[in-house]
């Protein structure tokens, strides 16, 4: 709103400076918690237990990262997380593209109602399907594998992916599709050759959102996996707390290592991330 009301050069206006200072103070307060983890990861356990966690380290101590990264369990956790995140991200986006295309370009009687049912799927608490899913995967012997985590994340990603893809496809002119069909293209060719190449921004938004949510998830791997070599990194961190109970620095380093992929994705695709958050604005 204020962007179109530039401050005219009348007398001195104290507001911009005041607001800047307020924001700076708030920003420091907001950064403090994260800064604590970064600081701790660069200090020895001895320094921290001396009550020195929250000060700047005199020397950079990288032993915590060495310890965290040389732990074979951590390798396993990270690999497992990738093995879940990549297929589930790809799977949910693919299914969302298929459904979104039909809802945007081939609507039928009752398609709006069906669409609403799908989208409602992103609101309800996952606890409502925990027990039956556990029983289902238990019956086919897939508990304590990564499969249920992949499958459930794929299924639960369908609502948000369908919603965003449908809304994006709706902005692609119908004339484009009709022209291609007149030229003898099949619906599949229209989707893959005409519409999808135009949809890269929406696909990027979804890739970022889904990657972040699935990587960060805690509940599903907690329910579906048991043995240590099937755990994902977020569960792994909690498990390793016992091993590094007073090695606060190693815990800090672990937290940073586990957040690095999502932080990297966030920093590279910041614009897409915010866009997805506001467009989707719905998934929690």
């Amino acid at each position: 709103m204020a962007e179109s009301t530039p401050m005219p050069a009348r007398r001195f206006d104290p507001w911009p400076a005041t607001i800047f200072v307020m924001l700076a103070v708030l920003a420091v307060l907001f950064l403090l918690p994260t800064a604590g983890v970064v600081l701790s990861s660069l200090k020895t356990t001895h320094d921290i237990s001396m009550g020195d966690l929250w000060s700047l380290p005199a020397t950079l101590y990288l032993g915590n990262f060495r310890e965290a990264l040389s732990n074979p369990s951590v390798h396993r956790y990270l690999l497992n997380t990738l093995l879940v995140t990549l297929p589930a991200t790809t799977g949910s986006i693919t299914l969302g593209v298929l459904a979104g295309y039909v809802f945007a370009k081939l609507p039928f009687r009752g398609s709006n109602a069906l669409f609403l049912v799908l989208v409602a799927g992103m609101f309800f608490p996952p606890q409502a399907i925990l027990v039956p899913l556990f029983r289902m995967f238990n019956a086919v012997g897939l508990i304590d594998t990564l499969w249920p985590v992949i499958v459930v994340h794929t299924a639960l990603g369908i609502p948000i992916c369908t919603l965003l893809m449908r809304n994006f496809f709706a902005t692609v002119p119908n004339a484009l599709r009709e022209a291609a069909i007149m030229e003898g293209a099949s619906e599949w060719q229209v989707l893959t050759r005409v519409v999808l190449p135009l949809s890269l921004p929406a696909l990027a938004v979804l890739a970022v959102l889904q990657f972040t949510w699935i990587w960060n998830d805690f509940l599903w791997p907690l329910i579906f996996t048991k043995s240590d070599d099937k755990r994902t990194i977020m569960i792994g961190i909690v498990n390793l707390k016992g091993q590094y109970s007073v090695a606060w620095g190693v815990q800090g380093a672990l937290s940073l290592v586990a957040s690095l992929p999502t932080l990297a994705v966030f920093l590279f695709f910041q614009r897409y991330f915010i866009k997805g958050m506001t467009m989707g604005a719905v998934k929690g």
Binding site: F30, P33, W215, N216, F218, S255, A258, S259, V265, F273
Partner: peptide, 8 residues
């Protein structure tokens, strides 16, 4: 903070 996981 939104892109940090609940665990972190």
């Amino acid at each position: 903070p939104i892109c940090l996981s609940a665990v972190i």
